[in-house]
Design a binder for these strands. Structure first.
Lengths: 233, 233
DNA sequence: TCAAAAGTGTTCTTGATACACCCATGC
DNA sequence: GCATGGGTGTATCAAGAACACTTTTGA
């Protein structure tokens, strides 16, 4: 069955879905959003937000739409992860899923009630329930990608609120990379890139010296990258 | 249209193909395989080898099968690249394609006549003809991936014959990365990893001093990687 | 004997790592 | 005044970059 030989009128072909692994960083922990399924198969099991791709929308549009419909989340970092197509991964019929991962800063994105009354909630990445389909595999793949990518692209900032402290940023990296970083070396490295803007503001309501707040200079990064600069932690 | 709500019996859904970007390194140049289309759309235009995914095969199996059917190539490095799903990328109907890229050493993989008499041939990556569908975009994506990956995974060896000289290896990197490398530093770096086995053999039939032949120690790399070693050029 | 590529070390510069104490603030 | 995290500098070590000449071989 080569592309050229086939007359496309009707022949049985796989269904296509998108699924989203939505990462958040809250209370110092890495979390993801899961949806509780209302119907068979895997009724009442937890699963990734996602659904079928429509004929008139791109894959990314489908991911954005499903994310909004099922979790209320919009305007976030979203990137294609991998496409999973094992025969039998869906017990109903042949379904290929194009997985995406998203990074959100949780304060800006509280989950709204999903349109169809399904339950959506945040789970600690380290304490996930049993998942529907091959969604655990998808999450494992997303975690590997996140850990790899966070080191050479400034995507960590997507998980933080606009204004953050250096300690918070360091802690984010420590949680994702699962190892401790030296405070002085981390600050030296990150500040030497000149990609953080020190604000005229400090932390509030903390029971210790209030830390300097920074924001990430996305504009400057874009410009530096264009000129061959490589972000690296 | 959420996964839960849909009753999967029949509803119109996208078609799914796989396409393969097959890289080869020959006569000091980076090349890829293209197939000349025998039918509409894009009749007589060049395109990537590929075709429709069957219901009873995984995505990777489909890629392997199409590669063999259309080019005769088998048993090569193959990795999923990206999934392209723009609406309108195929003028006939909605088709989503899962792209793979392959690395072959050309001496071991001469193209056989394709099963269906379509023409397959190697093209210089730097001199490609007009391509069907969005295949130029797919190739650009594959090149970016190859350039990125070759630096931190030992995949370059997949493009060379089993036995090769250090100069040949260096030249491969220079062609892929599009910059010159210092001979002494390159040799120092690559040999310091202790991943090359010096053979009791030298080049033959060259009009100059015959160079030492090496082979890549895949077994040792696997072991080192397991213990946290990172390949890097 | 000439052309062509193989092969080989050292110096310098830069970035990574290791490491400990004082400071500001709220309670 | 004490507990808590904020904030800072230096010395050592390792890796990367720059750089030129001799050797071997076939034609």
């Amino acid at each position: 069955m080569n592309r050229d030989e086939v007359r496309i009128t009707k022949f049985k072909h796989p269904y296509v879905t998108v699924d989203c692994v939505v990462f958040g960083f809250d209370e110092g922990d890495l979390k993801i959003i899961l949806i509780q399924r209302a119907n068979a198969p895997f009724k009442n099991k937890w699963a990734l937000p996602g659904g079928f791709v429509r004929l008139n929308e791109s894959l990314e549009q489908a991911a954005i739409r499903e994310l909004k419909e099922e979790t209320g989340i919009k305007d976030v970092f979203l990137e294609q992860l991998y496409t999973f197509g094992r025969v039998g991964r869906d017990p109903r019929t042949r379904v290929i899923t194009v997985a995406y991962y998203a990074l959100v800063n949780r304060t800006g994105h509280l989950i709204t009630a999903a349109t169809d009354a399904k339950t959506a909630d945040w789970f600690l990445v380290k304490q996930l329930p049993m998942l529907a389909f091959d969604h655990q595999t998808i999450i494992d793949t997303a975690l590997t990608r996140l850990r790899g990518k966070v080191r050479y692209e400034p995507i960590g900032f997507e998980l933080l609120p606009e204004k953050f402290t250096l300690s918070r940023l360091q802690h984010l990296y420590e949680v994702i990379l699962e190892r401790n970083l030296d405070k002085r070396n981390f600050r030296k490295k990150i500040l030497s890139m000149k990609l953080l803007i020190a604000l005229n503001e400090r932390e509030k309501d903390v029971a210790h010296r209030a830390a300097q707040l920074y924001k990430f200079d996305a504009q400057k990064y874009k410009e530096l990258k264009r000129r061959g600069f490589n972000f690296e932690i």
